[in-house]
Structure formats: structure tokens, C-alpha cells
């Protein structure tokens, strides 16, 4: 498990080359900045179609949208073949490339326990193509393909629990992180960097455009996602050992997270109550697993 760090321990040197092409206040651009800061120079960054393609002071390689897991595999095996496995194969993919079109290939790479690090910036929709739903989109969220109307309340189903699915591949390390908690994020990337085998960190990356809030509020939104229990921060090792990294005495009500985002503005009180109940139940399970230090998958 990662070790806590303080803000003073965060490296000053930057690995992203900016200004980049992301929108104002983009959570994904911040996720790239923080993660690559922690990784340092000896990595090859892997990309697939998504937004924004933050540029780093490292080489980049890329492939088709559906090929993320395979490309990492190829690089990692290739590096080993040429005797350069000191170089790390690191992905910076979107939720679409992780949860959906690239899911099969990443699952297979996890099953083979490839020596790769997958960083997913989860902005909970296909933002590059204009905010269409993905299986990372939370229930009731309005996107351009789950609009609200007499026959639709936004996305009908819950977000897919991808970190747990990958943990169930019994890989060395799976974690969640958030741009609202940079010390935690950097600690996790730093820790995962030097592990061997398949490692995945899913980073909550609020998107002002798709989530429909003022760009200045990206951190506020990220933080309240964690504080309400909707985006728990945790680590899972070998599919079994579990640790919650952020445990407030009391969770904030989910409405604090939902109401500033206009993607949820159509939600009724009943619907909010449903999300509240669901969140509380899941949080309960997580805290119990944390006490045990174990998950049963």
C-alpha cells in the first residue's frame, strides 16, 4: 500500500509540457500533470483516442481506441526483449478506452499480469466526441446520448465497478484516486510505478464541459465526490488486501456533489434519495472491508 506524503514532498519539477489543448479547468489535464510528475522521465506514455492528449517530456506511443491493453503489452514485452525493462510502459487512457471499447484487451493484459501501469482519467463519458455516455457514467447523469425527456431520466444504470473487476483479476495493485487529493494521487502513482506486474489507478477527473459546472469548481466538485462517498479512495492489492484511504467521520450528503453539476439537475428528491441510499450501503461495505483489511472477491 502507498505511503502518505505531504504537499512539501510533492516534486516541484513538471513532466507535462503546457499549455496544452484541454478546456479551461480540465480535470483530466490536471490528472496527467500530477501523475506524470510522480512518474518522472523513464517512461513511455501510451495513448489512445480521448481528450486531451496532454504532452509530456517522455516519448509517446499510441494505437487504435480498442487496443490499449495490447499496446502496453507489446511495449512491455518489446522492452524486455531488447533488454530495457528499466523503462516503464504507462498508459493514460480515458474511461471509454478502459471501461468500454478497450475493456477486453485490458482485462486480458491483467489476466496475463503484464508489467504495465494503467492510469485512467475517468471523466465519466466520451468527452472527446462531445459527452456521450460510457459505462463509467453514473446513474441519472444526462449526457448527449442519455438526454432527459418523457422516456428518459438520464443514464438508466449505475456506473460499472471497474476497479473491483480488475482487482478480481488478482493483479498486484488497483487503486482509485482523485485530482482533488493530489498528495494521495501522487503517493499512489509513486508506489505503483515501482511494482512489477499489472497496476491500475482510476483517477476521478471532473470535466466542466460535460458535467456542466463552472471550470473554477473542478477541485470543489472532485473533493465533494470523495467526501460524499460517491468516489471512495482506496487500494486493493492482489485482489484481496484492501485499504480505504479517506475515512471521514461522517459522509456529506450526496446532494452536495450532485446539485452543482447541471448534468444531474433534473433529478427529483426521490432519485437523490435513491442515490444517497445506494452510496451509504456501498460505503458501509467498504468500511467493513477496510476494518478487515480484506476483500472477498
Amino acid at each position: 500500500m502507498s505511503e502518505r506524503i505531504t504537499r512539501a514532498q510533492i516534486p516541484l519539477s513538471e513532466m507535462t509540457i503546457t499549455p496544452g489543448s484541454a478546456c479551461q479547468g480540465c480535470g483530466a489535464a490536471l490528472a496527467a500533470r500530477l501523475a506524470f510528475k510522480a512518474l518522472g522521465p523513464n517512461v513511455i506514455r501510451h495513448g489512445i483516442p480521448c481528450c486531451p492528449d496532454s504532452v509530456t517530456k517522455t516519448p509517446r506511443t499510441g494505437t487504435v481506441f480498442e487496443g490499449g491493453g495490447a499496446l502496453l503489452t507489446g511495449t512491455s514485452r518489446g522492452l524486455k526483449a531488447i533488454g530495457r525493462d528499466d523503462v516503464k510502459a504507462v498508459a493514460f487512457y480515458g474511461d471509454g478506452g478502459t471501461y468500454d471499447i478497450g475493456f477486453q484487451g485490458l482485462s486480458a493484459a491483467a489476466e496475463r499480469n503484464e508489467d504495465v501501469l494503467v492510469l485512467t482519467k475517468d471523466n465519466e463519458a466520451y468527452m472527446n466526441t462531445g459527452n456521450q455516455r460510457s459505462s463509467a457514467t453514473p446513474k441519472y447523469s444526462m449526457t448527449s446520448t442519455t438526454p432527459v425527456g418523457p422516456k428518459s431520466r438520464g443514464k438508466p444504470r449505475h456506473k460499472k465497478n471497474v476497479p473491483f473487476i480488475f482487482a478480481a483479476h488478482y493483479v498486484p495493485y488497483v487503486a482509485t484516486a482523485s485530482v482533488g487529493f493530489p498528495e494521495d494521487l501522487i503517493a499512489k502513482v509513486t508506489y505503483a510505478k515501482d511494482l512489477k506486474g499489472f497496476r491500475m489507478i482510476i483517477i476521478q477527473a471532473p470535466c466542466p464541459v460535460g458535467w456542466r459546472y463552472d471550470p473554477a469548481k473542478t477541485i470543489e466538485v472532485a473533493r465533494s465526490g470523495v467526501q460524499t462517498g460517491l468516489w471512495p479512495l482506496y487500494e486493493i492489492e492482489d485482489g484481496q488486501n484492501f485499504k480505504l484511504n479517506y475515512k471521514p467521520k461522517e459522509l456529506k450528503p450526496v446532494s452536495e456533489y450532485l446539485s452543482p453539476q447541471r448534468r444531474f439537475r433534473h433529478m427529483t428528491e426521490d432519485e437523490t434519495a435513491e442515490i444517497q441510499e445506494d452510496t451509504t450501503t456501498k460505503w458501509d461495505t467498504l468500511t467493513r472491508a477496510d476494518e478487515l483489511g480484506r476483500l472477498i472477491i
Binding site: 503546457t18 499549455p19 478546456c23 479551461q24 479547468g25 466542466p208 463552472d214 471550470p215 473554477a216 469548481k217 473542478t218 477541485i219 470543489e220
Partner: peptide, 13 residues
Amino acid sequence: YNACKGCGLCANE
């Protein structure tokens, strides 16, 4: 300033 897009995040935080 050449890298600042004026998102206001810094002021907010």
C-alpha cells in the same frame, strides 16, 4: 500568463 487559460480554479482554491 502565456499558459494561463483563465479557468479561475486557482482563485477558487
